[in-house]
Amino acid sequence: MFDFLQQYYPVFIQGAAQTVVISLIGICIGILLGLVVVAMNLSKFKPFAWLAKTYIAIVRGTPAMIQVMLIYYVLSKALPIPDIRFLGSSLDRVIPGSIALGVNSGAYTAEIFRSGIMSIAVGQTEAGISLGLSENTTLFSIIMPQAVRNILPAMGNEFISLIKESSVLFYIGVQEVTAQALGVGGTLYNFIPPLLVAAAIYFVLTFVLSQLLKLAENRMGRKYVALN
């Protein structure tokens, strides 16, 4: 049933590599955007907070596929990205696609950050401030380390769903692993075996990631248990 792999395995490896690359870029953009958006959302300057809330609401309330297509079509008009091949796809698809994944993920990450910061008791901030520490020192040395630990499980879930959701880039022609599986299926006139292979690849990727995150959680959790 899986004989085709002897011939097509390079295609799957390329697709898997493409999936990893777009997911990594998406995660990085998502984290950076999430940080900016959470700062805006919690800011006392109302227009910033309003902008952040609007962005989050729109991303959460519309299908990822439409977001990806919109961003792709807008960016390909606005940005002259050279048509360079990279892991079986053109960069003028990979780059807008990864940005779209990041824009989508940023909204969820921002909300995770917000709940992480809110979950640190007000008392921790007051303790820092009353020792004469600056607001920045209190935020970065007292609140953030605890927030990071609190949000790690939720961030892990977000990374995992981003890897799976990255298959939407198939719609704009990025040859990630789903697209490659469909291509192979078309050649074989049988979609089931290649799709099973693609599913297995996603499973391995998310499984490895979740194990790594568990390791990180344990390392951080060894020293203390949250007091809230």
């Binding site: 008392g123 921790q124 303790a127 007292i142 605890q146």
Partner: peptide
């Protein structure tokens, strides 16, 4: 403070 507010980390 009433709740001590030591830094747990």
């Amino acid at each position: 403070f009433q709740q001590f507010n030591l830094f747990p980390h």
